[in-house]
Each structure stands twice: as structure tokens, then as C-alpha cells.
Amino acid sequence: MRDNTMSTETPGPNITSRPSGRAARERMYRYVLLLCAATSILVTVSIVVLLARDAITFFTLVNPVDFFTGTEFLISRNVYGLLPLLSGTLLVTVISAVIALPTGVAAAVYLSEYASDQMRSVLKPGLEILAGIPTVVYGIFALVYVTPFLQTIGLPVNTFNILSASIMVGIMIIPMVSSLSEDAMSAVPDSLRQAGYGMGATKFEVTTGVVVPAAASGIFSSFILALSRAIGETMIVVVAAGSRPRMLNLSDPLANLFQGYQPMTAAMVQINSADSVSQLGFTSLFAIGLTLFVITFLLNLLSNRIAARYREEYE
């Protein structure tokens, strides 16, 4: 942020002809611009207030304990249990994390430590492009191309399944992990690497033993941001993961992957676009939305905290 030693008032001797009108105008611009900046606070407040308003209506009719611990979600029978939706969200998050976190960190290591300038100039914009593809397109990839591919290689997946959706979510969040982790690794000063080499360590040892631990807080905060993105991802799961809320099947974990689930975001879309839905069912939309907002908001805060708090300061 800019330090405020510069005064807004015109300096003492008035060079300009009409100081009073000018000062008033300066003040006006300042307030108009402040109003623009304050809009962002207004957005957050209106999200919380408007979502809470209908969510509270919902919770006066449905016991919050039942909502958060219920194992069945069936609007047609007015049964609102969040756990099946959470199962879907959890599955997507875990599978995509398994794909994206190691891949993203490895990519960051390559870009920050190994890549030549020429490779970087190709790979970095390439990864940015991955982040710029609309999520509905990823969803279509999953439904139309990945699922049939999984079927041809012999996996018993349904038409709508959580596996192909999660694979695409994973690919989508790779750039998020890689770019933030790479920033953290590039911030590790060269003197640390040199010290490592000076002790006779190989490049591999310097990378895994010095650079990655030194950048750990940045890497970790990128993980959390990526998870938060996976939790909030909507279109991929709407298109490819199906529309059946389902509890995790703990007795046969592998079978879970091949079935369709309905994560929270997908449930929100379905409730909203359903033709006939009761008033109570409609307000459940806001209860789910508020839960989602709180989860992602907390994760983002946590990520910022980790990045700020455990950052190793150099120099």
C-alpha cells in the first residue's frame, strides 16, 4: 500500500487559479472512488445476509442437527440430510487432490528448478491456458470423452460417475497448485541452494532437501486454495457426476469411484432448475449454499493465514 505522506490538498502557494472548486472536486473524486472500493464489502455482506435470510427460514423448519447429520437427501419426501451431498463433495475433493497436488508440486519443481527459459516460456502459458478453459467444457470432456475411455479400458464405470468428473477437476486445479507453489519456490533465495551445493549435495538433494521444505508454507497454502476450488467446482460435477445423492459406501471403497454422486454444488443447481419444488425445498438451496460459502471462505482464510504466518522470511 502506498504511504500517505503525499497530501491531497494543493500546496501552500496557490499556483492554480481556482483552488476552492478544485479542492472540492478532489474530495468528490476521492469519495466516489472509495465507494467503488467499498462495493466489495457490500458484496460480501449481501452474500452473507441474503443467504442467511433464507437459510434461517429453512432452519426454523428443519432441525439443523438433522440437516447436518442426516444420511438421506430427498426433496420429494422433504428429507434434508447433508451427508450424502457432503460425501459427493468429499469424494471429488479427495480424488482430484490425489491427482492435482503431487502433479502440481512436481510441475512447480520442474518450472522453478529444472526448466530452461525456453521450456518455461512454453509450459507456463500452457498451464495458464488450462486454468482459462471454462469448467463446462471440462465437464463435457469428462462426460463425452473420458467416461467412454474409462469404459474401453475396462473400468466398470456408470455413464455418470464421480471418477471422470474428479479427474477433470484435478486437471483443472493443477495450474493453481503449480503457479502458487512455483512462486513460493522461486522466492527461496539462491544462497540457500548454493549452500546446499557447497556441502556437496546433488541437485536432487538440494531440491527435495532445501527448496521444497523452505517453500513448504507456500506449497501448503496453494494446496488449501486448490481444495477450496475443488469443493466449489460446479459445472464439471453437474455435467458428469450424475444427480443421485448417495452415501459413501465404506465397505467397498473402490466401488464408490464408479458410481454417480451428487456433490453440494450439483444439488444446488438441480434444486434451482427443478420444475416443481416445495418452498421448503427451495430454501434448502440457501442452506446448502451458505454451508458451501462458509467452508470455502474458511479455507481461503486459512490459506492466507498459513502463507502469511509460516512464511520464512529471507533477508
Binding site: 460480501t44 449481501s46 441474503l50 443467504l51 486454495l225 466449489g232 449454499g289 470455502t296
Partner: peptide, 20 residues
């Protein structure tokens, strides 16, 4: 707040639009 808003899922903005 701006940093956090950038991380809010798009579906929540849709819900905001719907409500507001």
C-alpha cells in the same frame, strides 16, 4: 475481503444474483 471474494465459488455468486 477482495482476496477472499476471488475464492468464492461461482455457484454462490449465482445464488447471490438469484437472491438479490
Amino acid at each position: 475481503n477482495i482476496g477472499n471474494l476471488a475464492g468464492v465459488p461461482s455457484v454462490v455468486y449465482g445464488l447471490l444474483g438469484l437472491a438479490l
